[in-house]
Simulated scan of single mutants.
Amino acid sequence: MPLKDVLAAMIVIMVWGANFVVIKFGIDEFPPMLLGALRFFFVAFPAIFFVPRPAVHWRYVVAYGATICLGQFVFLFLAIYLGMPAGLASLVLQAQAFFTVAIAALVLHEAIRAHHVLGMGLAVVGLVMLDAGADSTAVPLVGFLLTLLAAFSWAGGNIVLKSAGQVRMLSMVVWGALLPPIPFLLLSAAFEGPDRIVDSLAHFSWRGVGVVFYLSGVATLVGYVLWGRLLARHPVARVAPLSLLIPVVGLLCADWILGERLGLWQWLGGAVVLIGLMVNLFGARWAAGLRQRLQRT
């Protein structure tokens, strides 16, 4: 992977890792479905008047909006609202990496090689160790299941992007964001009520403004544009596991900002995740080098 793509991946990891703390702040300012509507409204507008429509069939744009934009964040926002800790949400959501690789193997017939399996296995061990240190944090079952559904929606969106081929990601993100606001508003009106919507919009704070700006401008426009470009340039099995670094950042941010303290097992788990990622990314190169040395001897 070229250096510029590695740097792009690191930006995405940092932005999305901090995103979970921002979502937690946002849920305190707005009801979750209204927050989703605001997020994607400001992704689409006013950018839609300046960004050309993506040069792909409409079904890809609709599928992208329905999976990565709508499905993922309906489930994730609701999970955090119902008590899923922000740091652990960043951890559980990375099940998308496993869902993505599995769906890509079934749908796109991408190969899963031995070093991918080993790297992902190490990452799973690391993620379990990360979770083992969170004994002081209650994890509601419904929040956990909703976060898994969010992960599956994200994985579906990854496959949509890969299937669409070369596409201008800024166009895909902006035009895909046209779909979610109305369903989010309908869900908000049905379950949160018009009075709560009006009250939230009439009494928003500057922190609320900052939350919506970060979620729409930074986490969505910057994050998903860079992520989509990485998926277009590299095999899914190489890109998707990079997201396993996100919970390391997410747990650190939750520790520093929200007081969700990390235990020894979580620190050790983060190290194991890093080792798993290195095996996944560089395993083929290491194996080739080892074979060459064995042949020389």
Rank of each mutant, 00 (worst) to 15 (best):
A164L: 02
F20Q: 04
A138H: 10
L7F: 14
L93N: 06
L7R: 11
L242M: 15
G83W: 13
P140E: 12
L106M: 00
V61C: 03
E192M: 00
I80W: 13
Q292K: 03
L215Q: 13
V56Q: 05
N280F: 06
A79V: 10
L201E: 14
T67A: 07
W256A: 15
A271K: 09
V117H: 00
I27C: 01
V74E: 02
L106H: 05
V15K: 02
V249S: 09
V218K: 09
L3W: 08
L178P: 13
W256R: 15
F30V: 05
L186A: 13
G119S: 01
I11Y: 06
A111N: 10
D135C: 00
L230C: 01
G210M: 06
G71R: 07
V117M: 05
H234V: 02
N158H: 07
E110V: 04
I257N: 02
L281I: 01
G289P: 01
S153L: 05
V273N: 00
A164W: 04
A219F: 07
V225I: 07
L146M: 14
W265D: 10
V198H: 15
L145T: 05
L88S: 11
A138D: 13
K162W: 01
A104M: 04
G17T: 12
A111D: 09
V142M: 02
V239Y: 04
G165F: 11
F42L: 14
A8C: 07
S136H: 11
I23P: 08
F45G: 01
F184S: 08
L34I: 01
S163Y: 02
G83H: 10
L179T: 04
V128W: 03
A288D: 14
F30E: 05
A55E: 15
V198K: 12
R291W: 00
V92D: 06
L7S: 11
A79W: 06
S90V: 02
L251D: 00
S188M: 06
A271P: 03
A271R: 07
L221V: 15
L186K: 08
G208H: 04
W265E: 14
V279N: 06
Y224Q: 15
G65V: 02
F73Q: 05
M33V: 12
L252M: 15
G259S: 00
L185F: 07
M172Q: 13
H116F: 08
E29W: 04
A97R: 03
T220D: 11
F282M: 13
R196V: 09
V12M: 12
L118N: 01
E29L: 08
H57R: 14
G83D: 08
L149H: 01
L106P: 07
T67P: 04
Q94F: 07
F25L: 08
P85N: 10
T67Y: 02
